[in-house]
Design a protein around this nucleic acid. Structure first.
Lengths: 223, 223
DNA sequence: GGCAAGCCTGAGAGGACGCTGAGAACCAGT
DNA sequence: ACTGGTTCTCAGCGTCCTCTCAGGCTTGCC
């Protein structure tokens, strides 16, 4: 999952980056509204965390322009407590949720998860494909009801694929979202390696290879 | 979803009722601890929002009696900031989460959603995991039936982990809830150190490490 | 079949992560 | 001020994870 955090308070932005990375997200930063808009338009993010008060371009204005450009990435707005703006304004402007500063990281993560889940199509909290269950909330993976030990990177990859169950996801897309890099020239072999790890742990059939296109996890009916 | 709000401040209670209704919840009110307890026992609620300071019966006492009566409805406790009670106490007493006044409605809704998702895991008043028993009421810990000396911080950590038995809890979450700090940039090593202390006192296997994700105590079988 | 491009995988280097002992800082009681 | 206990910081170390590389295998195409 790739997030964009737009905030001009450097300390807070870094703290969020650290904290959210620890939760398994890939986090990019932008420090003013202009840079934020550029990144949001270009970046193909899964979610944007946006401060309301920003140099160059306010959070308001940023969301409006995003929506005008037909970009519907979920936006979580951060507002200062003393705000002359209130929640309604932020929400009316096209944000999907908002949070008042100061807030706790745990709450932020909970809201982010909720938004991501709501995001594309309303999906059950526990994702499922064949005999495999993925629970993003508790970071657990079950195969035939039994828990499987899985590393952080493996989990991030599996979660992304499962979130897009039924779709073919290219190696480049996986690399961008699961690994933190925009460097397109890099070797995508690492994706193959990790697909291999997952297959070894979960069974050969959990991830299909679509030659020349990418990978796909079958849409999941259990039982 | 049916919620019960117990608070003696009429204005606040009404505001919560209005706000939560708008979120799609059905909200009943009670204005003192006695009425709250009756309603909670009779009402089959999905969640209870509970002020700590109440006439007739404190929030504390209310939760304790609920749990004694084997009612495991999730409880979200509201505490005043200046409190002689602190948050850890609320959690030890059997509440599932807490929120310090003043708070924003959106945050409250987020917490409520999180609690409802987590659901009410029926658990005995004394929590148990393997050979270890934790009694929040008396702040005592037994291993193989023998009492183990434990410090306040160690207990808070163990209680939090045990309350979330079966789930992986991140170091950041532990740090926020057990150390009550919102400083995200601080070193989380102290969590590791205290996990080490607990393992030394209670046995290596009471707390599992989930590398890259956090810690977990095994789901307890209760005799 | 023969070939090339795409994909898989075993081995291993390097680094990130978690654990622990030592001890400093702090507090309460004497 | 001294003692005993608790909390927290720090640095070193071991382990597991991550990623690269090279060679082998599969697939699609002629």
């Amino acid at each position: 999952m790739r997030l964009l955090v737009v905030d001009d308070e450097l300390r807070l932005a870094r703290a969020l980056q650290t904290g959210l990375s620890r939760e398994g997200y890939v986090v990019d930063l932008a420090h003013d509204g202009g840079a934020g808009l550029d990144a949001a338009l270009a970046g193909d993010y899964d979610l944007i965390v946006l401060d309301l008060m920003l140099p160059v371009l306010s959070g308001y204005e940023l969301v409006r322009r995003l929506r005008t450009a037909e970009v519907w990435t979920p936006v979580l707005m951060l507002t200062a407590k003393d705000g002359e703006y209130d929640e309604a304004d932020a929400l009316d402007e096209g944000a999907d949720d908002y949070l008042t500063k100061p807030f706790s990281l745990v709450v932020l993560v909970a809201r982010i998860r909720a938004l991501l889940r709501r995001g594309a199509a309303p999906r059950p909290a526990v994702m499922r494909s064949g005999t495999v269950e993925v629970d993003p909330a508790t970071r657990r993976v079950l195969r035939n009801g039994e828990e499987v030990e899985i590393t952080a990177r493996e989990f991030a990859l599996l979660a992304y694929l499962t979130r897009h169950a039924g779709q073919v996801v290219s190696k480049a897309e996986l690399y961008e979202h699961v690994w933190e890099s925009h460097d397109h020239s890099r070797d995508l072999n690492v994706v193959e390696v990790y697909v291999g790890y997952l297959r070894r742990k979960l069974g050969r059939d959990v991830i299909e290879t679509v030659r020349g296109a990418g990978y796909r996890v079958p849409e999941g009916r259990s039982s």
